[in-house]
Amino acid sequence: MGYSLWIALLTTLICLVIAYPVALVVAFAAPKWRPLLLLLVILPFWTNLLVRTYALKSVLGSSSPLSQLAEGIYKSVTGSETFPGLILNDLGVIIGLVYVHLPFMVLPLYTALEKLDRSYLEASLDLGASQWRTFFQVMVPLTLPAIIAGCIITFIPAFGALVTPALLGGTDSLMIGSLIEDQIKRANNWPLGSALSMLLVYATFLILALQSWLSERRARRTELRA
């Protein structure tokens, strides 16, 4: 449970950090390029998750060029003799989950950034704020609802992931999804398996409730200000 939480949180965070610049590039690209760039973001969805995960397995497997490159860098930086590998460990689970869930984060961010009134940014820059300040104090607050939405729809499926940790994980990669599978299939303990599944449902409800509470509070505050 704690492990799933930790993996899902880390996945969400990494997705956010990668997805925001991607969404920015797409949203600020010339209009004729935008559909193509969006297509590139969505394209992986046309392939089944299982197939993509298997593909990652060979792309990042220990005999792949990418893995050998990483091995060379790892060994020269740490001076260690053994390389733990890119997959079949927690790193593999994170890479797999980030890869699979990235579009979930990019799409809401893109929508928000595209709708964003550019004059706010211009005003901020004209008034002497630096690019960084404009980003953190104008752009991020204005797209905050999208950030929250993106985080939620990334976090929830990542929390209950089953295929990715099963195929890319190591011995410790026991996420709640696999735990449920074990209880239902192997131990034949449907009550415990169902109870664990309900835990996932409760977690989802809790997060959604939190989100609606937050957005309501925000709405009320802007109302007050107006």
Binding site: T171, D172, L174, D182, Q183, A187, N188, N189
Partner: peptide, 14 residues
């Protein structure tokens, strides 16, 4: 025993 086996492996993995 099926339950016990599953529990053992769950404990080992965790």
């Amino acid at each position: 025993m099926s339950q016990k086996y599953t529990d053992i492996i769950t404990r080992v993995r965790a």
